[in-house]
């Protein structure tokens, strides 16, 4: 049996090339695959299509790649809080496609689940509807199509050799969906655990969706906006 376990980011990203489409998990900086992103920066890959809710934030995460001009195309739902992206978007250096967040997550889920298209009201009557097939059910809806990618890079708190994953708190967000949707899913974990250590009923993403997994290192786990009780 070939193992899914790789030594590190360098070993796991061995075949990623210029021009690849890459889904990257995380909401803001919460749950981002830090090691894989830094490896892409080290490899100096260019002309990437990044698919991620925020494309980094506050100068970190995928913004590390924006700063090196490695991303030419971005599909996301939110630019606020990411000055690197807003600047390169308004200067036409990165082609940005904004997708309503629920449509974004559902298009990714659809790709992984074999759904060929779905209708949703989000975006009807707005610029998002331009060029899209619409149909009225109880209300006007837009046809939205699956969103896939060459690679998904995601991070989980715990994972085992088969790729079963467990996410901590709100770090789950888009990661399991992206794992289902991409051709090759590369997972980095804070803790690579023995098979069975994540109880079957606690598996958030079954390993069948994962192609490669490695133990990550040196996590920053940046808190973007710390707000504490006494500041209320």
């Amino acid at each position: 049996m070939t193992s899914k376990v790789f030594k590190d980011a360098k070993a796991a990203l061995f075949d990623m090339k210029d021009g690849a489409s890459v889904m990257s998990g995380g909401f803001g900086l919460c749950g981002i695959p830090e090691n894989s992103i830094l490896e892409i920066r080290r490899l100096g890959l260019k002309n990437l299509h990044a698919i991620s809710n925020n494309i980094g934030n506050s100068g970190r995460g995928l913004a590390w790649l924006l700063k090196e001009k490695q991303i030419s195309q971005a599909t996301c739902s939110y630019v606020g809080g990411n000055p690197d992206l807003e600047e390169q978007m308004l200067a036409n250096e990165v082609e940005v496609t904004l997708v309503p967040q629920g449509t974004f997550s559902e298009r990714i889920r659809a790709a992984g689940m074999g759904i060929r298209g779905f209708y949703t009201p989000a975006g009807s009557g707005t610029e998002v509807a331009e060029g899209k097939e619409s149909r009225t059910f109880d209300m006007p809806c837009l046809l939205e199509l699956p969103l896939t990618a060459d690679f998904a890079i995601i991070k989980a708190q715990k994972g085992d050799a088969y790729g079963n994953l467990w996410f901590q708190e709100t770090a789950r967000n888009f990661s399991p969906l992206m794992a289902m949707a991409a051709k090759v899913t590369i997972v980095e974990v804070e803790e690579l655990v023995e098979l069975g250590e994540i109880l079957p009923e606690n598996v958030h993403l079954p390993g069948v969706f994962v192609q490669r997994i490695y133990q990550g290192a040196d996590y920053e786990n940046t808190i973007e906006i710390p707000v504490f009780e006494d500041q209320n």
């Binding site: 909401f27 803001g28 900086l29 919460c30 749950g31 934030n57 809080g81 708190q157 901590q168 708190e169 709100t170 770090a171 786990n221 940046t222 808190i223 973007e224 906006i225 710390p226 707000v227 504490f228 009780e229 006494d230 500041q231 209320n232």
Partner: peptide, 19 residues
Amino acid sequence: GRPTPQSVSATLINAGKET
């Protein structure tokens, strides 16, 4: 509400990216 400096977690945020 909000965490204390002791209970704060990098993986527990709202949609505004606040703890």
